[in-house]
Design a protein around this nucleic acid. Structure first.
Lengths: 171, 171
DNA sequence: GGATATATGATATAGTATAACATTAAGCAT
DNA sequence: ATGCTTAATGTTATACTATATCATATATCC
């Protein structure tokens, strides 16, 4: 995980350059296994598969798209099948939901529970996950000043990633 | 509008205490009228009505709930009717969409275009709108450091408002 | 083994949003 | 005024997202 400074981690970068996707998935799986073991969670084959599919897409993916892919291995899968698995994975911080896209994405750092902040490129649809304490603190401090107890922060930024702003790529 | 400090405005507070709701709506209407005049926008009766309904709810309201209420005055209204009006109002900053609720809420400061940050009480469902520059700046600076050009920020914080945290109210 | 809790199967339906095409209204050039 | 053009609304159908409900199976614990 790349550190930008002492307070910010880029949990998942944009455009995963040249990278071994298989390795990347299997590492995420290993992290999830560990996480479930530590918390005595039942990481069933179904949940495992859904998690793997979310990671495989390596970007935000919708529930019904997941369902389609899930059917290859679980013919009897129906909407509740995938939504239940997604609920489980979200509840335990293994994936995030991107509200503004109605889509789900793997969490790059499941061990630490966190809200996360997302930079969403409107051109290439890739998403970067940040965990910037300065942002989280700014939000929390303002909320607390109003007597508001912060539960979950949803920070989603729509814009253009470096690649898509520089060239005039428009895909 | 209450100023918390030089950088933050509470655009819309929680629990609008004792307040003249009719006056509050008509002020919002006036601000919207002005805003549309300044930008030469056609604020048609239909759009006006939808705007008024959004403000009347004085909290987040869903599109189909709006549609129901709209039908009182516009019998022929259908989903596209309300979605088009909502699109117009959002495009010109007269209302905001709360992604995590699939709902819409009036903007307390339409003159100035801004993203806005929302504190959503999970108990009483009221929403406060902030416009905290510290938050916006923290987000923008981190994004820019990655070469990301910020378009629209979505900041939604789920938690408990002062009222609902203090007592053990649970409605 | 039987009671309990957890997970999945199966069917139906609720809730949110858009596509596509028809019609009407408004502005403007001739 | 007439016709041209654009913007707004009407109308119908459908797509997409998510949950309710009840049945069945699997695991756990005593």
């Amino acid at each position: 995980m790349k550190k930008l400074d002492k307070n910010t981690s880029v949990i998942a970068p944009f455009q995963p350059q040249i990278h071994n996707h298989k390795k990347c998935i299997s590492e995420a799986m290993a992290a999830a296994e560990l996480c479930c073991e530590n918390e005595s969670l039942t990481f069933t084959p179904l949940r495992r598969k859904v998690f793997e599919l979310v990671w495989s897409s390596h970007g935000p993916i919708g529930a019904y798209e997941l369902l389609d892919r899930l059917k290859d291995s679980h013919r009897k899968a129906a909407p509740p099948t995938v939504y239940r698995a997604l609920d489980f994975l979200m509840e335990h911080g293994l994936i995030h939901r991107i509200e503004s896209l109605n889509a789900y994405i793997g969490c790059g750092d499941p061990a630490r529970h966190h809200g996360g902040q997302f930079l969403i490129c409107q051109d290439c649809r890739t998403v970067a996950e940040l965990d910037d304490e300065a942002v989280a603190r700014a939000v929390a401090s303002r909320a607390n000043a109003m007597g508001f107890t912060v539960g979950q922060q949803t920070v989603e930024v729509i814009g253009r990633c470096a690649d898509c702003s520089s060239g005039s790529r428009n895909d």
